[in-house]
Design a protein around this nucleic acid. Sequence first.
DNA 1: AATAGAGGCAACCGCTCCTTT
DNA 2: CAAAGGAGCGGTTGCCTCTAT
Length: 260
Amino acid sequence: MGRSPCCEKAHTNKGAWTKEEDERLIAYIKAHGEGCWRSLPKAAGLLRCGKSCRLRWINYLRPDLKRGNFTEEEDELIIKLHSLLGNKWSLIAGRLPGRTDNEIKNYWNTHIRRKLLSRGIDPTTHRLMNEPTGTQKMTTISFAADDQEQKIKIKSELVETMSKEEKDHEIQERCPDLNLELRISPPHYQENQLDHNQRANSLCFTCSLGIQNSKDCSCSSKNSNGNGCSNIISMNISGYDFLGLKNNGLVLDYRTLETK
DNA sequence: AATAGAGGCAACCGCTCCTTT
DNA sequence: CAAAGGAGCGGTTGCCTCTAT
């Protein structure tokens, strides 16, 4: 039952990687591709744990990595994504080509946290540190799938402490010409081809949007490699950028990034 | 010039979720 | 179906470099 251990810990190197180890790992992956980290160290002639090889490759040796300082645009994008996703570094990294989760996590802890604190913003909550908790005005629009009809119910949700009237006013103020009628559905399958779980795990979406007075609208989803689908879906509606986060099944939470 | 402290970052640890047996 | 491993993730550690004294 089960499998054999991934590596013999007694005979594996730890700590900083040598140039020779790097070269061996690069050569092996160039020849055989990524994957099967468990068997890779032995096959590549490395006295390392597979986990260590994977980390070294992903965080340091991958050819598509963008080395060097973060730009101001990247800084702001990280801050926005963090306000939406929290410490989901891998998801954040998925939106920044050439950057790794580890790199972003380190950068956040060493630079951005301090930057936000100097602006008087709590880096955990993204609220002004002297702002009373009851006055926060964050707009969250949730799109929840109806299991039976595959239609999306749209509900607007603001901070708990706001009254219904305040919430309604807030939405109107933020998106004055929006009258959303949004449907999100798995693009490639017939309804009867998927069971509920498959639908729930299908992360590719097409969106049809009916918007009154819409000027432009685009929607896309990308995975961490930047070419497929993921838990994050971005939309631009009438100049407002929205980021959607998939929760359970086809439940999405969209938050405006206020880039208009 | 020596040294202590701070900052930065690569790497490790331990956990969770998913897959395999 | 249960147990164990694999893969991936976020948190933490420890080492190296830089800077102030």
